[in-house]
């Protein structure tokens, strides 16, 4: 619908290469190492889930990849450009053209309508609204099922509707990469499924690469690939989550039952990929 004729070109499939990315938060003389050498590659037109326990550094990684924060060391290269060396202005411009953000909270601008929110990244770059921008925004809102809510004030939309507007906004400038940090984290099951389905469909239609962090294993399963991050490094398979059952005296530990199946499938895929390489 958005770009129905899209087929990923086979000649250069790499979109993003992350090499030994590190981040240490420094607060006065207190240092918090969060990313400790992250390595991975994203291909064009992939939908990848980023998984990992709370505090493992998912949001930090997405923020750095979105050029909103600079890494302490390491490099990442997108579309052939080394982003760690770009100046603030160039980063801002790159972000505007090539990266779309979807956050857990929709972060719509409350004083603007749904349509204006979607147009904003485009109009803000050109310093004026254009007919082309307006048409594209309207088309995107139509695509996310909000044709009849285009001129509603952002504050007058439901939670799920707001998040769908946020998706449309992230796609406004036809970015190469959409970064979504727990995009369904604030929604109930039904809404989460709808929003996720929408993202998958749009991802397929547009050939945009999606990297989304989530705690929802069910949704992660529906992505083409999963990257696990564990205390600041990418791991082949998730360490099975330990859960303490209400037996405080004995402290009996039970391994999370869901984990193994996930581990098996992905680890095989990952290993296969590595073997092939």
């Amino acid at each position: 619908m958005i770009n129905p004729a899209f087929t990923p070109s086979s000649d250069d499939l790499a979109l993003l290469e992350v090499k030994d990315l590190r981040k240490v938060f420094i607060d006065r003389d207190f240092q918090t190492p969060v990313l400790k050498g992250v390595n991975f590659t994203l291909q064009k037109a992939e939908m990848v889930a980023l998984l990992g326990p709370s505090g493992s550094g998912k949001s930090t990684l997405l923020t750095i990849l979105g050029t909103l924060m600079r890494p302490s060391s390491g490099s990442f290269n997108m579309l052939g450009r080394e982003l760690t060396t770009l100046k603030e202005k160039e980063l801002s411009n790159f972000r505007n053209q090539e990266i779309g953000f979807i956050f857990q909270y929709h972060h719509l601008l409350p004083d603007f309508t749904a349509l204006e929110n979607v147009m904003f990244p485009h109009a803000g770059r050109l310093w004026r609204e254009t007919r082309v921008g307006r048409e594209r925004a309207a088309m995107l809102l139509d695509r996310v099922g909000l044709k009849d809510r285009m001129n509603y004030q952002a504050t007058r939309l439901s939670g799920g509707q707001k998040q769908r507007v946020a998706i449309a906004r992230a796609l406004m400038n036809q970015p190469a990469l959409v970064l979504a940090d727990e995009p369904t984290g604030n929604l109930d099951r039904e809404n989460a499924d709808q929003v996720f389905d929408l993202m998958t469909e749009i991802q397929r239609e547009t050939g945009t690469t999606f990297l989304l962090s989530t705690h929802d294993r069910e949704l992660a399963e529906r992505c083409q690939r999963r990257i696990y991050i564990e205390s600041g490094v990418v791991v082949d398979q998730p360490v099975p989550r330990e859960r303490t059952i209400s037996a405080p005296r004995t402290g009996l530990r039970v391994i999370d039952g869901d984990a193994p199946s996930v581990v098996d499938r992905t680890s095989t895929t990952d290993r296969d990929l590595q073997r092939r390489a």
Partner: peptide, 12 residues
């Protein structure tokens, strides 16, 4: 709001 604008590449 300003933060979010900057996040989608609105210039300073």
């Amino acid at each position: 709001e300003i933060g979010i604008m900057r996040s989608f590449g609105i210039s300073q």
